[in-house]
Amino acid sequence: MQKRRQSSQLITDEGVFLDKHVKRTKIFVFICIVISIILIVLGAGALITEITY
């Protein structure tokens, strides 16, 4: 079975953006989201701990 390479194209006012590796982009975005959530939890934890000290 032939694998079809997926690509994503968006036309915006600023120009054409062509993403050739959609899966890689999705994994990267997922990692960024996970790290962001960890940072938010750590920040909230630090502030709450300080308030309740």
């Binding site: 600023e14 953006f17 993403d19 960024c32």
Partner: peptide, 8 residues
Amino acid sequence: VKDPASKA
């Protein structure tokens, strides 16, 4: 541009 990786 609307690059999700860059925005993330």
